[in-house]
Amino acid sequence: MSGTTIKQDLPPPGGYKPINYLRVPAKTYFSGVQMFVLFNVVTFGGLYIWSYTHEKLKRLKTEDRASRLALQPMLYAEKDRLYMKRLRKLREEEEELMKDVPGWVVGTYWGEPIYQTRPENEWHEIQVTEYMAHSPHYKQQYINNFFKWL
C-alpha cells in the first residue's frame, strides 16, 4: 500500500464557475397596447376584406337559385305528367293482378278505402311503397335511398 499514489478530487484550477441563477427574460418585441392594436387591426381588416368575397359568393348563390327557379315550372310539369301516368299504370296493374280474387276492390283493402270521409275524386298523394309496389326490390331500395345522393 505504501507505493500507491492518491489523487485527491479537487476543483479545477481557478475554481468553479459561478452558478447562473439570474432570470433571463424573453426579448419583448411589442408592448401590450401595441399587441392589442395589432390584433384589432388584423381582425377587422380581415373581416373587411372578407366581406367582398362574401358579397361575391352571395351573388353567385343567388344566381344559381334563380337559374333553378326559372327551370322549376318546366320540370314540375314533366314530373306531374309522369306521376299521373304511373298512377294509371299502377291501377291497371292491380286490376289485372287481382281480377280473380272475389271481394277485392281496386284501390282499397277489401272495400275499405284509405280516406273514408273524403270525396272519392279528391286528389291525394300516394306513399313511396305504393308507388314502387310492382317494382323489383333493388328499385325500391334505390328510391328509398335516393336522398343520400342529393
Binding site: L87, R88, L90, G107, T108, E120
Partner: peptide, 9 residues
C-alpha cells in the same frame, strides 16, 4: 292506392 272512382287523365 288509387280507386276506380278517381278520375285520371
Amino acid at each position: 292506392m288509387i280507386t276506380k272512382g278517381k278520375e285520371l287523365p
